[in-house]
Every structure is written in structure tokens, then in C-alpha cells.
């Protein structure tokens, strides 16, 4: 018979000692109660690295970036770190849709170097054949070569977690075992436009921790409950979060699936996901305050106001380059230039 599913409320969460050990990261927003992050730690750091290439020294950049936003390596020793790339609907003909395998492997190298137990996990949102998603994205071959374990989050046992965000009507979420048991989840999105939300980055990428076997392909339960609301709720309900955004080869136009390649050469990192996504929106020429899920996250999950975000590495204005968005009313209102604001 099946093992009974877990209740996440009963599983151990980060204790005070762990938080102290990872104090640098906590400065970026890792507090025990995610709902209080924005209130008690109103500032956040975001690191931007420019001129990055997939065949470059990505691990060194990621290590530098994480340290710059406050990560303390000793805090990751023997911790379970789940890397969550974006593999929504991979096809080898559109590699700019999904997180590049080189970035995933480089992140694994960094966290392993800090003594963490690293797993890569994803619940592809539009395809049931996860083996296909792994093959088409190139992730299968890269993980095999790096000897990194992959967890198919679509089909794992699940644990129930109360909805700590309470922006949607959902009472809670079913999280796969690898998510429920992780000490840290590292959202590793592709920097893309999104034809409904304007931008998809670290927060929206976490839709992909929910199992299709419960939520469907697509995860229609979430859509019906409200996309902005459920993005905030999922982020508020997960264990401690970090993000490493693949902004090297990006997608503009009709993202997140059918858009065009836009080369940016960026890696963006942080421990406060709204702050990182707000910075990415600015780089793309969008107004973060008008992105529905970022507007909901303000004062709940973290800051998106520029004055509350400490820039590390490059300044966003130095790397900004407006992304094409579809000419639709709900997207037009997101553009900085449409509001008469400078885009760089």
C-alpha cells in the first residue's frame, strides 16, 4: 500500500540555530515566517552579473553572487538544496524557453562545494512525459555527466501544507516530497516575458514545484484560483527560498513558450524573490508595481521599490534593454516607456 502522505505542518522547519548559521542569507529575507519577511526585513540585495556565457565560468559567478547577497557557505553544510529550473514545455528548437543546463550544473557545483545535498527537481507544467522534457532541454545529459539526481515532482508522494499567503481561496498546497523536505529551494527561472503576467521569473517559476498528478497539465487548479494570488501563496508557503535567474539567452515577445530569443548575458541572484523579479522587470523595461503578482507581494514577501533594493554587481540601469511585449492592453500598461519613464 501507499505510504500515507505527510502533513508538512508536522515536518521540521528551519530552527533558530539554522537561521543563525545562515544569517547572511537571512539578511536577504530568509526568516522563519515568510509572511513576515517584507515587514521585518524591508531591504533586500540583488546581484547582477553581466557579460555571462554558457561556456564561461558560471560557477564562479554564482558563488560570487550568492556571497554578495549574504549567503554564508557554512549554513548549507548537510542541508538539502533543491534546484528548481524552468522546463515548462521544452523543445530543442527553442532553447531560450528553458533554463540552460550549464547554469543548473554550475549552481549544483557551488552548493555541493558548500557541503549541501543537491537535487534538481521540476514538475513540467505542460507535458506529462518528463523524460522528454529532460531530453529536449538538454538537462538529462548534463545532470548525468555531473552526477546530479533529478526528482520528477509531477509524480512524487505529496505532503499537505497550509496556504500561508492567503491571497487565493486555496486552503493549502500539495507539495512533492523533495520540496517538502528541502531546507532550501533555489528558483532557477529563465528570464522571459509572459503573455498574461508581463514577466515570468523567480516567483512564477515556483508554479513548477506543484505536482501535475494533483494540479493537472496545465496546473489549471491554480489558474482558476487566480494566477497572481497563487503565485504569492505558493511563494509564501514554501521553505526558504533563493533564486538564480538565467538571463543569458532570454525570451521576449510571446513568452513564456513562443517568444523570440533576446541575448542579455545576465545572471541575477538574490534571497528575496520579489526584489529580484522587480529588478528583472525594470531591466526588461516593465513597471514592477504593475505586474499583478509583484503588486500583491509588496509588504508581504519583500520589497519591490527600487529605494529598498540594494544593488550588488552591476546596476540595473547599466544592463537594461527593453523586451518586446505583445501589443495587448493588459501588457501595454506594464511598459515603462508607455508611462513616460526612462527605460535605462
Amino acid at each position: 500500500m501507499n505510504q500515507p502522505h505527510q502533513n508538512l505542518e508536522d515536518t521540521p522547519r528551519l530552527n533558530r540555530r539554522t537561521l543563525l548559521a545562515t544569517g547572511g542569507v537571512a539578511l536577504g529575507g530568509l526568516l522563519a515566517a515568510p509572511w513576515l519577511r517584507g515587514v521585518l526585513r524591508p531591504r533586500a540585495s540583488v546581484f547582477i552579473a553581466a557579460n555571462q556565457r554558457y561556456d564561461g565560468s558560471l560557477a564562479a559567478t554564482i558563488r560570487e553572487g550568492l556571497l554578495a547577497v549574504g549567503a554564508e557557505p557554512q549554513g548549507f553544510r548537510d542541508k538539502r538544496v533543491l534546484l528548481k529550473p524552468n522546463m515548462v514545455e521544452p523543445t530543442r528548437h527553442r532553447p531560450h524557453m528553458t533554463t540552460h543546463p550549464a547554469v543548473i550544473v554550475a549552481a549544483a557545483e557551488v552548493f555541493r562545494g558548500w557541503g549541501a545535498i543537491v537535487t534538481v527537481g521540476e514538475a513540467p507544467g505542460h507535458v506529462r512525459d518528463t523524460e522528454m522534457a529532460l531530453a529536449e532541454s538538454g538537462v538529462a545529459a548534463a545532470l548525468a555527466e555531473a552526477n546530479v539526481v533529478f526528482a520528477d515532482l509531477n509524480y512524487e508522494e505529496v505532503a499537505w501544507c497550509r496556504n500561508r499567503g492567503r491571497q487565493s481561496m486555496l486552503r493549502g498546497f500539495w507539495f512533492p516530497r523533495s520540496v517538502a523536505e528541502a531546507d532550501y529551494i533555489v528558483s532557477m527561472p529563465k528570464m522571459k516575458t509572459h503573455h498574461w503576467m508581463g514577466v515570468t521569473a523567480s516567483m512564477k517559476n515556483l508554479y513548477g514545484v506543484l505536482p501535475g498528478i494533483q494540479y493537472g497539465w496545465p496546473k489549471n487548479v491554480l489558474h482558476h484560483a487566480g494566477i497572481p494570488q497563487t503565485v504569492v501563496d505558493i511563494n509564501a508557503s514554501l521553505p526558504s527560498l533563493l533564486t538564480i535567474v538565467d538571463g543569458i539567452d532570454c525570451m521576449e515577445g510571446d513568452g513564456p513558450i513562443l517568444g523570440s530569443l533576446k541575448r542579455m548575458g545576465l545572471l541575477v541572484m538574490g534571497a528575496n524573490l520579489p526584489a529580484v523579479d522587480a529588478t528583472i522587470a525594470r531591466i526588461m523595461g516593465l513597471v514592477p508595481e504593475r505586474v499583478p503578482y509583484l503588486a500583491l507581494a509588496v509588504n508581504r514577501l519583500g520589497p519591490i521599490d527600487e529605494s529598498r533594493i540594494d544593488e550588488r554587481g552591476e546596476a540595473w540601469r547599466e544592463v537594461a534593454s527593453p523586451f518586446e511585449v505583445l501589443d495587448e492592453p493588459h501588457l501595454r500598461q506594464l511598459r515603462r516607456d508607455a508611462l513616460g519613464l526612462s527605460v535605462t
Binding site: E89, D129, M132, H195, P218, I257, L326
Partner: peptide, 19 residues
């Protein structure tokens, strides 16, 4: 077939073998 949509915002979606 895609997982279930056909055309969204004027673009035809990608076909997949399993569906």
C-alpha cells in the same frame, strides 16, 4: 495536439506526441 490549447493570442501552440 498541445496539452489542450490550440491558438492563444494569435499564435498556434506546439504539438506534442503524447497528447
Amino acid at each position: 495536439c498541445n496539452y489542450g490549447n490550440t491558438i492563444v493570442l494569435g499564435q498556434t501552440l506546439l504539438a506534442h506526441v503524447q497528447p
